[in-house]
Design a protein around this nucleic acid. Sequence first.
RNA 1: GGUUCCGUGGCCGAGUGGCUAGGCUGAGCUCUGCAAAAGCUCCUACAGCGGUUCGAAUCCGCUCGGAACCUCCA
Length: 502
Amino acid sequence: MNLFEQYPVSITNSLSGSKELFTPINPPFVGLYSCGPTVYNEVHLGNLRTFTAFDVVFRYLTHIGYKVRYVRNITDAGHLTNDAGEGVDRIEERAKLERLEPMEVVQKYTYGFHEVCRIFNILPPSVEPTATGHIVEQIEMVKKILENGFAYEKNGSVYFDVRKFMEKHKYGELSGRNIDDLLEGTRELDAQEEKKNSVDFAIWKAVTPSHIQRWPSPWGDGIPGWHLECSAMGTKYLGKEFDIHGGGMDLKFPHHECEIAQSVGAYGHAPVRYWMHSNMLTVNGEKMSKSKGNSFLPRELFAGEHPLLDKAYSPMSVRFFMLQSHYSSTLDFSNEALGAAEKGYRKLSAALASIKDMVYPTAAVINQELKDEIIRLTADCYRTMSDDFNTAKTLAVLFEMASRINDFKSGNTPIGSVDALTFEKLKATFIGMMEDVLGLVEDKTTNNDLLEGTINVLIELRKKVRADRNYALSDKIRDDLQAIGVQLKDGKGGEISYTIEL
RNA sequence: GGUUCCGUGGCCGAGUGGCUAGGCUGAGCUCUGCAAAAGCUCCUACAGCGGUUCGAAUCCGCUCGGAACCUCCA
């Protein structure tokens, strides 16, 4: 029996607003799409929260046996600063600012994004398509929409005709928007406006020859509309209908609403079964965003170089911090919260290191109560993750497991008081949940053989003087090491371990 | 103005009708030569006011407060 059959997944579907049992179109295959970054500048921590959320979705679905094809795009063309069409092209704008070619901008920030993902242990998706690599597909889609009568051309641009679309289909279902009100409220279009209605949106946008990023099309040189790329690439790699589409809450309208309309306009049916939206990272209760100027960059975090940060925080502490709340809730970013997360994460990380080294000895007297508890905890991990990817609850379970692991480590409880099967289940589940599902690997504070060797020399020395009951000297060794960030810990059997805290 | 969401103990943050979430902080105890780590115990809250119910943080209404989207943002 597959894990996904044993622990059926439920997902809060933005379309219905309620939690639904997840049934893939073609099990065990799952098509997952999430909106990636527009690579016109550095990603900040708010962006990262969303990527982390869907990274965990990808990891968990894979972990429980689904064959997931995860598509996350790179937007490297067509993203204007507003929909109306008079907006500035983000990438062109940045290129002018940095005196680079647009593709240099794209390259620079794409690499930067990948580097940040690596640092935060966000897995690469199965396919990472770019808008510039799929101009042909996007043009084909525009053609289809035009053929079906849901778009019109004006001065070399093509706009999606929302009002026409609404004669046959619904628009605004995802975001719960009443478009009649929108149409009413914004009737006044200025004379320059090419759109028939303000709710119409560009699916192909004409640009002037001075625009470096531009492609030929049946309607003249231009760029694809921003909303279109996700529809075109999602369709190409996942099909005309696929299972899950995710993204940040702020993309729900208009971006995702437009995606739905385009796909329906082109193929006659809705593209996605389950829509998932991750909530915003906030600072003092307000959304973290570039335009508000309250965003934090990953490198500022690691260096502790930000006016609002007391110190540096490790990538895994931050990942843990994000996973401690549910993806659908806002999460407030602060020094206090981050500091608490760092300590909590260290505790789990230490338990992870401990259990990795543990081997089952011979069975002793079996403690049935403990055995039952451990079995329950291992199942709880899956139950909570299958319950709409509740990482916060799962971490709570992992903390309970960590306490049992520490009992084993300290010798409070002999490992043999549970049977070998139970112990192996605890070990596999804890490691699997931490590393594979949540992506919380051990913080690599030490990967230096020389340092490790040197500390071990001092540890051996301290063991000797302790055996000689020369506590003055043994304390000095410990205190001096602690002063530079190396904490020695005396075990019960006389063994000494250490942790490095910078 | 329209649409939607939220308000949980010192702090962060789960929780969708009945069972102590969890983490951090603080206090105490155990272990330890002393520490550290670890284990255990304690501090038991749901913005306010009404209502439904045998029973509500959880459902409904109102009030107050905060936020997001409606213009680019994950």
